[in-house]
Design a protein around this nucleic acid. Structure first.
Length: 423
RNA sequence: GGAAGGGUGGCCGAGUGGUCAAAGGCGACGGUUUGCUAAACCGUUGUUCAGCAAUGAACGCACGGGUUCGAAUCCCGUCCCUUCCGCCA
């Protein structure tokens, strides 16, 4: 959530920034009204409680007469009534506050949607083929790597099965990314992928109708996470980091579940956009003054991984309108996809500042030993399905074999994907 | 699943209905002293609300209810932790 003090101090600024995120700024005005009501109610309740405290102070020495006790009882009822009222007001106050998205940082381009995203840089060059390159589904069929038909039979549309060398390639990518990040000081985590609904709410994606994008198990009060970020952040809810523990970095490997409710007709038929995929994800907790540097650090790791594979990619800074509610700044990596002759999103790295830590109560002890909210960041190491697509398409050979990128060879135990035969 | 014991401030820890304004200690911050560091001493050190401020008030003992004129303390529910037993890949 946004710091209430900031909204009181500069409501026009917040209104502007949430308007940039395509959210109706009228909630700011609504919240300010609720805030006023709340504070009036707190004052009134304080007065009544003061009255009661004065009374009971007297009763310490002399037991109350029955009339005095009756009056005090009346006072108690008045207090209880007002407490109930205040509780309602606070709920409303809080619900409105939760609807206000994290304002974007100043260097984020203002715009309505992804058309306003800005390219920051580009690395590498697209591969040149002296033959007619195939798309990943054709290559997958050739080597029996991806089975959409069986997945569709057993689970429905937008599912895929990774088989044979694709399954091994997943494990190679996972092992490579995790061992790389562990060397950089990340703590490896295999988290639960079912988390409590209130945790999911705390992450800040569910407001503005986000529940419809998730698989919600109402009977159990659980949600299937859309990314390990949700697990890794909520795992640390309520935590107080020691000053010297920061930055604390985690790398998680998990399945990710998405209903893709708003993407009918987009990327159908393959594994580019599926309801379930696996991902290696970075999450970082740091001091507020370090978060911009930390964001750059996470992006640099994404780049290092991509460069080491030899993939052609570009970095895009997302416009205000294309950024998620918790994010103050998001930089996506888009990787060159030969069959579409364009860049497609494979990574996303966000600085969520104190938006999530306020909601999930994640703090640290600053140098004065008092508690302050940490900044929370997340970034993709590898979204496996999409990486497999990119590797297949970019490193295909004339004879149909797929050349495995150098860093993955030892994990794969082979240099080429060719037709899989049981030994 | 069964049994027992626990959850108090940044941390440790006392407290079984009003004397709690939550003792005492540690840590941190500010000050005095000091050639420097340390020590010693004094002060500050939870949240919210009103106020320009001095300040005042309320809240705060895992969370949510309840009893009472009055609850950290009594009662009910929930969560979590520890130990022991049982079951299990």
């Amino acid at each position: 959530m946004v710091d209430p003090k900031l909204i009181r101090e500069a409501p026009q600024l917040i209104e502007k920034s949430i308007n940039n995120k395509n959210v109706d700024p009228v909630i700011v005005e609504k919240w300010l009204k609720a805030d006023k009501k709340r504070s009036l109610s707190i004052v009134a309740l304080g007065e009544l409680r003061y009255e009661r405290n004065q009374l009971t102070e007297k009763f310490k020495k002399n037991k109350p007469t029955s009339k005095q006790a009756k009056d005090a009882k009346n006072l108690r009822e008045k207090i209880q009534k007002l407490e109930k009222k205040l509780k309602e007001l606070e709920n409303e106050w809080n619900e409105l506050l939760l609807l206000i998205p994290n304002p974007s940082k100043n260097d984020v381009p203002v715009g309505k949607d992804d058309k306003a995203n800005v390219e920051l840089k580009r690395e590498g060059t697209p591969p040149k083929f002296d033959f007619e390159p195939k798309n990943y589904l054709e290559l997958g069929r050739m080597h029996d790597l991806i089975d959409i038909e069986s997945a569709s039979k057993m689970s429905g549309p937008r599912f895929g099965i990774l088989k044979n060398d694709a399954a091994l390639l997943e494990l190679a990518l996972v092992n490579y990314a995790i061992s790389f990040l562990v060397k950089k000081g990340f703590k490896p985590v295999i988290p639960p992928t079912l988390i409590k609904k209130e945790m999911e709410k705390g992450l800040g994606y569910a407001d503005q109708g986000g529940w419809k994008d998730m698989y919600v198990l109402d009977e159990d009060n659980l949600v299937l996470v859309a990314t390990a970020e949700h697990s890794l952040v909520s795992m640390n809810s309520g935590r107080v980091f020691e000053n010297k523990e920061l930055p604390e970095r985690f790398v998680g490997y998990s399945s990710c579940f998405r209903r893709e409710s708003g993407s009918y007709g987009k990327d159908t038929g393959g594994i580019f956009r599926v309801h379930q995929f696996d991902k290696v994800e970075m999450v970082s907790f740091c001091k507020p003054e370090d978060s911009e540097k930390e964001h750059e650090f996470l992006i640099s790791l994404e780049e290092e991984l991509m460069m080491s594979l030899g993939l052609h990619y570009r970095l895009m800074i997302l416009s205000t309108g294309d950024s998620s509610a918790p994010s103050a700044k998001t930089v996506d990596t888009e990787t060159w996809m030969p069959s579409e002759n364009k860049f497609r999103e494979t990574h996303s790295c966000s600085n969520c500042t104190d938006f999530q830590s306020r909601r999930l109560n994640i703090k640290f002890k600053n140098k004065n030993n008092s508690l302050e909210y940490v900044h929370v960041l997340n970034g993709t190491a590898f979204a496996i399905g999409r990486m497999i697509i990119m590797i297949l398409e970019n490193f295909q050979q004339k004879d149909g074999r797929i050349k495995i990128p150098q860093p993955l060879i030892s994990w794969m135990g082979k240099e080429y994907i060719e037709s899989f035969t049981r030994k």
